[in-house]
């Protein structure tokens, strides 16, 4: 790919010796008085797809949103532990959350294009980063990578809201990858989509994995099996009277599904597939 002035993405072979891009360690996490997550430690490997699965309310989305400090926008959020992105603690007071989010992009559960044209949606991040080069080229590149180019190349001027749900979500992916972030977070990206659109997004993830590290939250176990290299299973602990999520086990996807170590994992997988 062409050389660019945007946030530089390290070559896949580079990085810490152990190949860990983000080291997520949530010892205890609260929203105000609500004790939401405990004991969740998930090192995320470079150039792979990592999935977060578990029942609703287990804190998997919360864990994902810690990775680019989206939780800062929630009042009362605080936690003990650390999140290290390429060996820098991103919650250190010296770190600017805005800068973090430019390196760690995000795709949300509901497609959320801006009320502007397809082109401007994709160009938004480029403009944010003060990109000086050829916008049209970068926009096209991002749309091609998001497997959307052929469908929208004749309607770049149309509103992003005029696309179908699946197209909108791929537009959001294009928007997120246009600036070449190092990591792409996806929070149940297919939950609002039909099966065909879902399949397109999954194929896309497998292609994108070549260039980006991807972390995905999904409630769909088959999806995790189809795309993820490693999977973390989270569960809800109601023993203290609250509803606190925690990590049960975190292993290569195949092992986790074929040979779960913990009873909770076994029960959940059995329940979901029966």
């Amino acid at each position: 790919m062409t050389a660019i002035e945007l946030p530089q993405r390290p070559a896949p072979s580079n990085g810490s010796a152990d190949g860990i891009v983000i080291d997520l360690k949530l010892d205890r996490l609260w929203y105000g008085d609500f004790f939401a997550v405990r004991d969740t430690h998930m090192p995320i490997e470079r150039g792979s797809i990592t999935a977060f699965i578990g029942p609703s309310g287990c804190g998997k989305s919360t864990a994902l949103r810690c990775l680019n400090r989206m939780n800062d926008l929630v009042e009362g959020f605080r936690f003990e532990g650390h999140v290290r992105f390429q060996d820098q603690d991103i919650y250190h007071p010296r770190i600017d959350p805005v800068a973090v989010r430019r390196h760690i992009g995000m795709v949300f559960q509901q497609p959320n294009p801006f009320a502007m044209s397809v082109y401007k949606n994709v160009a938004f991040g480029l403009k944010l980063n003060g990109y000086k080069g050829d916008y049209a080229e970068r926009v096209e590149l991002a749309l091609r990578r998001a497997a959307l180019w052929d469908e929208v190349k004749d309607k770049l001027k149309q509103s992003g809201l005029s696309l179908s749900g699946g197209q909108q979500q791929r537009l959001c992916i294009a928007r997120a990858i246009a600036t070449e972030p190092a990591v792409l977070l996806m929070d149940e990206p297919c939950s609002a989509l039909d099966p065909i659109a879902t399949r397109k997004i999954e194929e896309l993830m497998l292609e994108l994995k070549e260039r980006y590290t991807i972390a995905i939250v999904t409630h769909n176990l088959q999806q995790a099996q189809r795309v993820a290299d490693k999977t973390g299973f989270m569960y809800v602990d109601t023993s203290q009277g609250g509803r606190t999520g925690y990590l049960v086990e975190y292993r290569p996807t195949r092992e986790l599904f074929d040979d779960p170590r913990e009873q909770a994992t076994k029960d959940y997988i059995a329940g979901q597939f029966s």
Binding site: L73, V98, V100, F108, N112, G125
Partner: peptide
């Protein structure tokens, strides 16, 4: 909608 503002923040907008 909050999700639209969220999208901007997610891209690293101040």
């Amino acid at each position: 909608p909050g999700k639209v503002r969220e999208a901007a923040f997610g891209l690293g907008a101040t």
